[in-house]
């Protein structure tokens, strides 16, 4: 985001309006994910939520993360989801009304309500923030967001950054191993499916790699 737009966004009404709209988008998308019968609809609702979160990132001066959010999440990951949905043919509808596990749904809702109440209570009534800076540098001040984030990642968090490369390599290997057929069957149809699965893994890797680096 160009820094020139910041004064505009700083305007009170606009600011509040953006938050409200983004929050509404996020929550409606989230509810859509949870309640959608068709996995494809769920994936599209997820895009909605991710996009709303990206907006709020921008609203909080995290322009780089917003961009990555859109590119990696909304772009790569959701596409990957849709790809898998289509690939394995689970785009049929799920009966959301029925719950085979007795007591699971009330318990889940009770746990959710209780957890939410506790989170809100903690946020509202207690001050957990110590105020001790992490040493990674200030978020505000001169310089672009990308520059500050890059400085932080490549100095203070260099070791975790390098470790993420190992993590990604492992993920690639894992995906290949999982998608590979143990023994190539004689039937041609299965082999094609395996190849497609492999391709999916590689696609995910191909998308994730440039995004993280």
């Amino acid at each position: 985001m160009p820094a020139a737009l910041a004064p505009v966004l700083a305007a009170t009404a606009v600011d509040t309006g953006v938050f409200v709209v983004a929050a509404a988008v996020i929550l409606s998308g989230a509810v859509g994910v949870v309640t959608g019968r068709n996995p494809v609809h769920c994936a599209l609702s997820l895009v909605l939520t991710l996009f709303g979160v990206a907006v709020l990132f921008v609203a909080q001066d995290a322009q780089f993360l917003a961009a990555v959010q859109v590119i990696v999440y909304a772009g790569a990951i959701v596409v990957l989801f849709l790809f898998v949905i289509m690939l394995i043919g689970v785009d049929r509808e799920e009966d959301v009304r029925a719950e085979p596990l007795r007591g699971q749904r009330p318990a889940a809702i009770a746990v959710g309500v209780l957890g939410l109440a506790e989170l809100l209570g903690l946020a509202r009534f207690h001050h957990w923030v110590t105020g001790t800076p992490s040493g990674a540098g200030a978020a505000s001040g001169p310089g672009s967001n990308v520059e500050k984030l890059a400085r932080s990642v490549f100095t203070r968090y260099l070791l975790p950054f390098e470790i993420t490369s190992a993590l990604l390599v492992i993920a690639v290997v894992g995906a290949v191993v999982l998608a590979r057929r143990p023994q190539p069957g004689p039937g041609g149809g299965d082999g094609a499916e395996a190849n497609e699965a492999n391709g999916a893994g590689e696609a995910a890797e191909a998308e994730a790699e440039p995004a993280s680096r």
Binding site: L149, V153, T164
Partner: peptide, 21 residues
């Protein structure tokens, strides 16, 4: 006012990508 939080998000994104794969 600490850029470390955004760095954490960065790493979460990487992990999420690997996890999804």
């Amino acid at each position: 006012d600490d850029i470390g939080g955004q760095s954490a998000v960065f790493f979460v994104l990487v992990v999420a990508a690997a996890e999804v794969v």
